[in-house]
Amino acid sequence: MSDLPIPVKPKSRFRLALESDLFYTFRRSPVAMVSAAVVVVLVLSAIFAPLIAPTNPFNPASLNLMNGFTPPMTPNAFTGDSFLMGTDDQGRDVFSTILYGMRISLFVGVAAVFFAMVLGITLGLISGYVGGWTETIIMRTADVQLTFPSILVAMLIFGIAKGVTPVEYRDQMAIWVLILAIGLSDWVQFARVVRGATLVEKNKEYVQAARLIGRTPGAIMLRHILPNVLSPVLVIATISLALAIIAEATLSFLGVGAPPTQPSLGTLIRIGQGFLFSGEWWILLFPAITLLALALSVNLLGDWLRDALNPRLR
């Protein structure tokens, strides 16, 4: 005799997602919805920057030096052109540079977090599942790295990488070096969380059942344990993204990040702060507000996600 199963059609992943508790708490959290909206708008405008931006700030042909230092929403005295957020010293439209700068910032942030995530998950899974000396070496390395501020680690890696790249490739390579530097400075927390979750999961009986039928450690880690340790990773990835964007901005602000030919939000802020005291406030203010909005909303989204996925806080 069965437990009276009710015959129903298996639900698709999409349907399950819509009915999930996560979606439900999302709908009930105004902070999460506003942050998500801000993130979506910013990300979309970065992706479609060439379509939205009035000018391409990296095309010298479209620049007119006469337009330099035009205040926002005011017609230029010489050319009569008006700009939403004004222009910088070279007459580049600040709004356009922000859109293009955000592309660099987001690309570096996402790529760095992805790199850190892959590295951290791999090392965390291996040290949690295999244990022994492998674990000791990986986790002690992580501990040592944690004693340095991550921005310092990133600068160190950046410095070394810059030293070994030939001069003519430096500007091209800068973005990739930046990603490597931020990613390497950020993998530790992924590894720690994944290792902790792996230690819990590997003793559960479904993992024993898989070992019993002779599945290899690799298959068990990838197919069984990995899907079950991903939810805390998701939280860290979101919060790390905000931090990575800020780290990139910091490095660029310090002059060791994105080159002026490919300015990120940080580079724009660095350029802008030179004009702050001569009255051209808009060159600094608008990139700074964008960075703030981006980092804050990603971070709030991460905070909400952490609370929503943590059953103890429900």
Binding site: K204, E205, Q208, A209, L212, I213, G214, N228
Partner: peptide, 22 residues
Amino acid sequence: IDAIRSDIQMIFQDPYASLNPR
């Protein structure tokens, strides 16, 4: 070894932990 492995199976105590939730 492979032949014996498929001849032995196990049922565990905790029905909540013995099925992969994903």
